[in-house]
């Protein structure tokens, strides 16, 4: 083999090795995080977690009931407010405003909001809701989550509706169906699994969000269903417990972290399976 070619081969092999190493590096982190989570989280996972409220300082009794319920309420409310808005906005972008100047501006701004730091969203809701309402509240937390949901749902809705073939819309219009029904009956139906994927991804995104809740919903040591008061939630509870001096609290934090991660991963995988079904069709 001539020496130039041999050198090129060697270089190629080294770089290939590095790329394989990089892939192994990425997968290793995921594995490490999941293993430590399972190892530490499973140890404390028992029925008590789901039936008892967060413990007072120093106590070795108690679970995460109030935090779990609070997280569920705020996630559902956040998605409930944000998803329809995002869905309608995405509909406008894909159906009415395809060649609009407004559409490209909104798409651009939306893409920026999609990756905007979530702590900034928290500051925004603090100024816009918490200060006028004179207090931290669950509704402020839900609104903060809704602001995070909107861009995610908007983006997927627009993408999915743009995939629906125009011939379907034209056929419906030719039968005399008005525009709004063409969208609702034909386009939504054709893109249904894609739209659900978007909502699932948005739910996964907000289920573990901590930063925007830190000073909107705050947290609550007790069980509360009132939307006007502070509400316990898993991420902020974990945040507080990790930094606490009590071993039992740290144990609860690990269990809570495991719960959140499993939920989020399940939502992500579910969304991906739905999405994959769609492209396979």
């Amino acid at each position: 083999m001539n020496p130039i070619y041999a050198r090129r081969r060697r270089k190629d092999i080294v770089i290939r090795g590095l790329c394989i190493g990089a892939a192994a590096f990425g997968v290793t982190w995921l594995a490490l995080i999941l293993i430590t989570l399972l190892y530490n989280g499973l140890a404390g996972l028992n029925l008590q977690i789901f039936t008892e409220n967060t413990p007072p300082p120093g106590s070795n009794e108690g679970g995460l009931l109030n935090a779990i319920v609070g997280s569920l309420i705020m996630t559902v409310l956040g998605v409930g407010i944000g998803a329809p808005l995002g869905l309608f906005a995405g509909t406008y972008l894909a159906e009415y405003g395809r060649n609009d100047k407004l559409t490209s501006v909104i798409r651009f701004i939306n893409d920026i909001l999609l990756s905007a730091p979530s702590i900034i969203i928290g500051l925004f809701i603090y100024g816009a809701v918490v200060v006028p309402m004179r207090g931290f509240s669950a509704i402020a937390g839900s609104l903060a989550l809704a602001v995070i949901v909107i861009p995610v749902v908007l983006r997927t809705t627009e993408d999915m509706l743009l995939l629906v073939p125009n011939a379907l819309r034209e056929a419906a219009s030719a039968l005399g169906l008005p525009r709004s029904l063409v969208i609702k009956r034909i386009a939504y139906r054709a893109a249904r699994s894609g739209l659900i994927t978007g909502v699932l991804l948005a739910t996964a995104r907000v289920a573990g969000e901590t930063a925007p809740l830190l000073f909107t919903a705050l947290s609550n040591q007790f069980f509360s269903l009132s939307l006007n008061k502070t509400m316990a939630n898993l991420p902020v509870t974990i945040n507080n417990f990790v930094q606490s001096p009590y071993a039992y609290w740290k144990q609860l934090a690990w269990s809570g972290a495991l719960l959140i991660t499993l939920t989020v991963l399940a939502l992500n995988i579910g969304a991906r399976i739905l999405g994959a079904e769609r492209t396979a069709k």
């Binding site: 309608f88 509909t91 909104i106 969203i121 709004s180």
Partner: peptide, 26 residues
């Protein structure tokens, strides 16, 4: 048709309002 058009259009504009709200409140 008209209602649906305006619901979607206003939702789309709400994205701009959110950005504006963030900037103003900060």
């Amino acid at each position: 048709d008209l209602t649906f058009y305006w619901i979607t259009r206003l939702s789309a504009i709400s994205v701009l309002l959110i950005l504006g709200g963030i900037i103003v409140s900060l």
